[in-house]
Amino acid sequence: MSEARIHDVRYRPYEGEIKGSPRRAVGSMARWSAMRALGARRPWTAKVVPVGLALIAFGPAITVLGVKALLGTQITQQLPGDIIPFATYYQLIAFAILAYAAIVIPETMCPDRRSRVLDLYLSTAMSPREYVVGKVLASAVPLLAVTTLPLVFLYVGNVFFSDDPFGYVGDHLREIPAILFGGILIALVYTLMGLAVASLTSRRAFATVGFVLMLIVTGLIGGVLRDALNLGPNSRLVNLQFQPVWLAQKVIGEAPASIAQDGPLQRFDTPDTSLLILSNAIIIVVCVAVLALRYRRSDA
């Protein structure tokens, strides 16, 4: 009699295609990391912060368009053409952007170090560079939604409520690429700053506190240099809080003084554009260097 045995382990050699492309690894890392940071497949408590910050970012646009919708065009015509100019919008949502960078971005990176799953990732064919690129995308793309979509929403709403939509688009055509550039710049710089700080620790809370402290300390130093020592607006370049926002505002167009008179983004009190470009470039380079240093293949 035969001694044949049947092993139903439902396992068979994989005969499908294994694509070793870095793009697929980066895409997968970005998708899964973004899902985790945004609370997907996790309890509702994990979704509160990212969803709340997104709502805050859309708040001013929803309010403006809501007023226009409720009061009708006759009343809104008496208001300034743009109740909230695009350049000023960043000022209103700066808290949401900074809070996102401080709270949500570390969530994409710190847990990997804390749970040591990073070792598992790097034991696949994925390189540390691909890992970091994946994390940058995972952080920047959702942040891009916060920095860009509310302004796009406001722009479209303004067109919709305008008496002369085509005329509005014609008058504000230059602002479309400026909004996109500003949104990308802000998302990229704050993402890199958030990730660079997060790369220094395995604890998300430490990363959040470190990021906030960095903003507060540089803001204080910038304030002291400008006000106490009267060194002029360029001394605020040491302030890391609003560097990309200031540059984005310069690109979109200066905020009217009547609106931005007392805020930190006053048009007459921001550093020179060329120096802002330089300082943003330096921030990007330093952050990339920190990430490269922290995520180099140390031993091979």
Partner: peptide
Amino acid sequence: HECLPPELTAADLVRHLAELRGLS
């Protein structure tokens, strides 16, 4: 050593690593 993220399900982690290793 311990290297598994506690907040993921087993299926999600294995899926994620399969994608990192080049599977569709």
